[in-house]
Nucleic acid binder design. Structure first.
Lengths: 142, 142
DNA sequence: ATAGTCCTTCCACCTACTGGAAGGTCAAGG
DNA sequence: CCTTGACCTTCCAGTAGGTGGAAGGACTAT
C-alpha cells in the first residue's frame, strides 16, 4: 500500500507517517522504485498511533503503548499505569491554567478598557520591587 | 550592570536574557571588553517580560505589551484587548484538556489494571473499522 | 602565575511535526 | 512518443521558547 492510501485510511498526513518511520514507530518495506510499501499491520499501527496522539499521549508513551499493543501477553496494569500518569499530568495542567485564567480574568475585569493609559493589567506587569520577594505568589507556564 | 546581576534581579536566567536580546526585546549596550552593560530600564523591561511570560503571554504579545509599556499615551483598551484574547485562548485550552481528562478518566476507571491483557484502554486505541481488516482473528495481527 | 568565576559566541537539542524545493515515477491522453 | 498531472522520494529549514554545553576571553584575588 502506498503512503497516500495509508494516509487516507489512517487519517494521518503523509508527512507525519514519514516522520513516524524516521523515529522508528513503523518500518514499512520498500518497492523496487523506492516507494514505501505499507502492510496492513502498519496501517493498524498508524491508526493506533493517531488515536493515542489524539488522547495527548507523548511520542515515547506511544512507543511504549505500541509495544504493549503488539504484546498479547501484556498486563492491563502496564497500560493503565501509563494512562494514569498521563491523566495526572493533564489534570495538573488544567489546574495551572485555571489559576492563570482566574488571574487574567480578574485583571481584564478591572481594566476599564478606554482610551486612557491607566491600566490595572499594566500595573500588574510593571516591576515595582526588583530583587525582592512578594507581589506575585505563583507563576505558571503554558 | 552585568548580565549575572540583571539575571539575579529580574529572576530570568542569563541564557534567556541573551535570547531576548537576540530577538530584539532588549538592546543593552556593550563595554570595551565585549560584556553587555544593562541600564536600569533594561532591568525593568526584563522583569516586565518575566511577569508577562509567567502569565502565559506569547513572545510576540510580550513585544506588543512592551511597546505599550513604554508608551505613556497608550490606551488601556489596547492592553485589555491583548489580555482578553489571551484569556480566551487559555479558556479554550482548559476546555480541551477537560474533555481529554474526562475521556482518560473514564478509560482508566474501566481498566481493571491486573496482569491479564484484557484492557478497555487498549480497546479504545485499537483500530477496528479499517478497510480490509478483521479484528484480531486469533493470532494473525501483531 | 594561577585558580576560580564571570563573560562571550556558537552549535545542538527539546516536541511533534509542517512547509517547501528539487527531482524521480507512473498512468492516461493526444 | 511526449506531455501533463498526480504521486512519490529526500533533504533542509522553521515553528515556540528556550536550555545545555563547549571553547575561549576577561576579571579578581592571592
Amino acid at each position: 500500500m502506498n503512503i497516500g492510501n495509508v494516509s487516507e485510511q489512517s487519517g494521518l498526513p503523509a508527512k507525519t507517517i514519514r516522520y513516524y518511520e524516521d523515529i522508528g514507530l513503523v518500518q514499512p518495506s520498500r518497492r523496487e522504485n523506492g516507494y514505501r510499501d505499507f502492510a496492513v499491520q502498519d496501517l493498524h499501527k498508524l491508526a493506533f498511533l493517531g488515536r493515542a496522539r489524539s488522547l495527548g499521549f507523548g511520542i515515547e508513551e506511544c512507543r511504549t503503548l505500541l509495544s504493549l499493543y503488539e504484546d498479547r501477553e501484556r498486563s492491563s496494569a502496564d497500560v493503565k499505569a501509563i494512562a494514569q500518569s498521563h491523566l495526572a499530568r493533564v489534570d495538573q495542567k488544567i489546574e495551572e491554567l485555571q489559576a492563570l485564567s482566574a488571574t487574567l480574568r480578574d485583571l481584564v475585569v478591572r481594566c476599564h478598557g478606554d482610551d486612557r493609559p491607566d491600566c490595572p493589567i499594566m500595573d500588574d506587569l510593571t516591576p515595582s520591587d526588583l530583587a525582592g520577594t512578594r507581589k506575585h505568589p505563583a507563576g505558571t507556564t503554558l
